[in-house]
Structure formats: structure tokens, C-alpha cells
Design a binder for these strands. Structure first.
Lengths: 173, 173
DNA sequence: CTGACATTGACAGCTAACTGTCATATCGAC
DNA sequence: GTCGATATGACAGTTAGCTGTCAATGTCAG
């Protein structure tokens, strides 16, 4: 019982290739959509994560929520700060890790971006049906989870957990 | 009849965010998987596109098949050429656009990468069921198509098609 | 209180996508 | 056959992810 179709026709491979394509298409569409606002897809996404967090998280927390590294998010946050779309508020729990919050300009820009996106999202929902979209989102989430478990297991097999004190103290997910 | 949920809960937005996440997870997993072979996710994908094309396409054709720009693919193909994983065969139809073909080493590397990927793909299929994966792939493909139509329509509205001879002669997809 | 460990920000460097531009090659209309 | 449109490769520059590393901060066991 080892299905293992050839690499091109395996269902998981087909999904992976479609994910790559749609990811590229979404980024391209997003860039075009919010360029008039001085935004990019990446900045828009970070802005959204900050908005969703309600301004109560530092950079590293936002990165965790987005599934990215804190370094990547930090660079974008610095850009947004230079544009006066975000500001840093003191964090009662940590002296260096300031809380990232939207400025009024940032909130306006995010609202404008959302307004640009809404008709596109509705068009996509018109083409697919919301229940099917929800189901798809669920499948994608479970695939990401399973994939994480898989690679974690591979790391374990690669002689990595058998050694205590082997961890470089940080950033080895 | 304008659903337009808020930006975070709209079904299309949720799918988009899951696509971003899974895309990142797949690239990370792929990089780790094929690193021992001297490959990366990008090189592996290009290698696969060349294998699938049977060595009968130039760089630009491979890029079209992958949904990327020819410049991106060109750089990776040059890397693969430097590693002796691909070679350039004369193209009977075009003097400059050589056909990109796998060398025996390249074919071996791709086969090895496929062998590394197979158990992961099977694990994903075990977690989700192949019919559901096929359905998901279909939804993703249709989303990409719809998105392309949408952005194309936006370009048209931006006063772009009403003008003949407006095209900069190249690369304006 | 102290020392090990985890978290965070900051900086440097790498990879992989993108756009823009140019010269060259092919194709098609006339 | 020639000329405009298209396709291709090449090169330069930008953006957005990543890893690696370090110092500073916070947390917790002892």
C-alpha cells in the first residue's frame, strides 16, 4: 500500500503547484491593487496583522501570527514606520520590544486597501461559493499543519533530538 | 446584494491567507528536503518543469508553463547550467532561444528529489484524501483564473485597452 | 540572588521573485 | 522583400522572504 504516483500526477503535488501559482497571482494582484496607496502586498499584509492584533503586539508576535520570521516583518514594519503608517508604543512587559500600532494614516490606508480588495474578494466568492472556499481554506490549513509535523519528524530522525544542548539557543524552527 | 464581509472573515480572504502560509511552508519544507542534493525549492521546480517539457522548450517557454517571468527562470536555469544539471541544445526554430534539457546528472538529481518528496506527498494524502486534494487543486486553479480575469478587467478600466498601440511591446501581463 | 535559557531587536548577507530596458531573432502583413 | 509586431535572451535594479549572529531583556529553577 504505497500509492506514490509519479511526481507530476500525485494529488499532493498538484495542490502544491496550484498553491505556488495562486500565491504568485495573489501577490501580483495585491501589488497592483494597493500600489496607488503607496503600499505593496507585503506591507498590506503586515498592516492587516497589526490591525487584527489591535496594536497590542511587538514585531516578533506579529511575525508569529503571520507565519514569517521576525526579521522579515521587522524590515517591513520599519518601512511602514518611515511612512508614518505605524508607531511604537511602550510595552509594559518588555523594555525593548515596543508594541506596534497603527497611526490614523495607517488605519486609513488599511481601510482603503480593504475597500479595494472587497470587490475582488466578492468576485472570487461569486466564482466559487463561500462554503467551497471555507472548505478549501480548511484543507490548506490542515496541509500546512501536516507538513510542519512531517518536517519536524524528519528533523528528529536526522539525529537532532537525541542530542541535548544541541540547540543554537534561537531561531531553529 | 453585496456580501463584502469584513476583510478578515471574508471566505476569499481566508483562502488567500492560507495560501500565503502554505506557500511558505511548502518552500521551507522543499528547501530542507532537497538541500542534501545541492538543490533548492526553486531549482527543483525548474528542474521539474524542464523534465515535464521533455527538453523541448527554451527558457521563456518554461517560464510560461510555471507562471513566472522568463527573467526569474533564466537566472535559475543559469545556476542549474553551472551545476551541469541542464544543458542547451540548438533550437531548429530559433537561433538564440536554445532548448533547455536535463543532463544525466540533472535527471538523477530530479529523480532523487522526487524520491525524497514521495513519502511527504503520501503523508499529506493520508491526512486529507486524494479526492479532496483534487477538489482543492481545482478550486485553486479556478481562483487563479478568476483573479487573472479580474485584474485584466481592472487594467482595461484604467484606460489601457481603449488605446491601440499602447503596449510597450513586451512583458505587460 | 544568581545563572541558564528563551525572547526580542538589530545588523549583515543570501535567494528568488519582480520590473525595466536593450539588442537580437522570428513571424506576418503588405 | 521589407518593415512592424512579437518573442527571446541578457543585464541592471528592487522587493521580500530566508539564515546567521550578537547584545539586551525577560523568565525561571535552584
Amino acid at each position: 500500500m504505497t500509492p506514490t504516483y509519479d511526481p507530476f500526477t500525485h494529488p499532493a503535488s498538484r495542490v502544491a503547484l496550484e498553491v505556488f501559482r495562486l500565491n504568485g497571482a495573489l501577490i501580483a494582484a495585491g501589488d497592483a491593487l494597493v500600489a496607488p496607496l503607496g503600499l505593496t502586498s507585503a506591507r498590506w499584509q503586515v498592516l492587516g496583522a497589526i490591525a487584527e492584533a489591535g496594536g497590542g503586539l511587538p514585531t516578533a508576535g506579529i511575525a508569529r501570527n503571520m507565519g514569517l520570521t521576525r526579521q522579515s516583518v521587522q524590515r517591513v514594519v520599519d518601512d511602514l514606520s518611515a511612512m508614518d503608517f505605524v508607531r511604537f508604543a511602550p510595552n509594559p512587559h518588555h523594555k525593548r520590544a515596543k508594541l506596534v500600532q497603527l497611526t490614523p494614516e495607517g488605519a486609513m490606508a488599511f481601510a482603503a486597501a480593504s475597500a479595494c480588495w472587497a470587490p475582488v474578494a466578492d468576485a472570487l466568492a461569486a466564482a466559487i461559493s463561500s462554503p467551497a472556499l471555507e472548505a478549501t481554506a480548511g484543507v490548506l490549513r490542515r496541509l500546512a499543519e501536516t507538513l510542519a509535523q512531517q518536517t519536524e519528524a524528519r528533523h528528529a530522525l536526522a539525529g537532532w533530538t537525541t542530542d541535548p544542548r544541541a540547540h543554537p539557543t534561537e531561531d531553529t524552527p
